[in-house]
Amino acid sequence: MDEIILEVRAVCMQFGGLHAVENVSFVQRRGEILGLIGPNGAGKTTLFNVISGVYRPTSGSVLFKGRDTTGFPPHRMAELGLGRTFQIVRPFPDLTVIENVMVPLHLARYRNILASFTSWNTKTIRSEALRLLEETGIADLAELRAGLLPLGNQRKLELARALALQPALLLLDETFSGLRHEEIDIIANLVRKVREKGISILLIEHNMKVAMGLSDRVVVLDHGRLLAEGDPESVRRNPAVIEAYLGKGSMSYAS
């Protein structure tokens, strides 16, 4: 079971009468980039929230690293090695860029009450944070207040912050939306580099070109249900996907 990092088993998520996610199952292999795509309102972000512990699913279960983590709170999931970024970027606006990355670097010690009362601004933590900022290409902005960064750099910061958790699995929620082409390429390369380090990546992406280009496999959701699953090429050709996604007769997304 070691090569499976994440397994979603028959997950249902209801809000009142609304079935946001209905009976969705899939697995993700270790080291894989898995794309989660689907039209707006398909339940992608809801599924992310179930996996990362924000919501407890109405039924079904989530297995992370072979362990049933259904209903674990977000901070426990983070401890277990799950990092995530958000659709709407949310750095801690009043902290500097480097402090933002230092926050998750302390993870291992938040559990230890006594260690928590020691200084956070140590040389080792700072240099570790700086290394992550260099990796994501924003080291020169380290001392700036995070709220002042433009969107592209905030996305890089979110990535650095998620990587600071030393995750085994990284959930990226529309990391590329609203960015210029050059920035998309830079971040796409970053994502590939992250995967080379052995970190599995589950990504939600609206930009089909990016999603198809990056993903090893793709899972398609529509109205909360699993519509298709497979390698990008076969999904791209799947008539059900084309119809659900763009309406009949439209193949332009494949260009």
Binding site: S52, V54, P73, P74, H75, M77, A78, E79, G83, R84, F86, R90, F92, P93, D94, L95, E99, M102, V103, P104, H106, L107, R109, Y110, A115, S116, F117, T118, S119, W120, N121, R161, L165
Partner: peptide
């Protein structure tokens, strides 16, 4: 100056994010 203080400040800026940061 302390980690717990950083955690409190992070939590007060964005509780949801702070919990995904562990």
């Amino acid at each position: 100056r302390t980690e717990i203080g950083l955690a409190i400040r992070a939590t007060s800026q964005d509780r949801a994010i702070a919990s995904t940061m562990g």
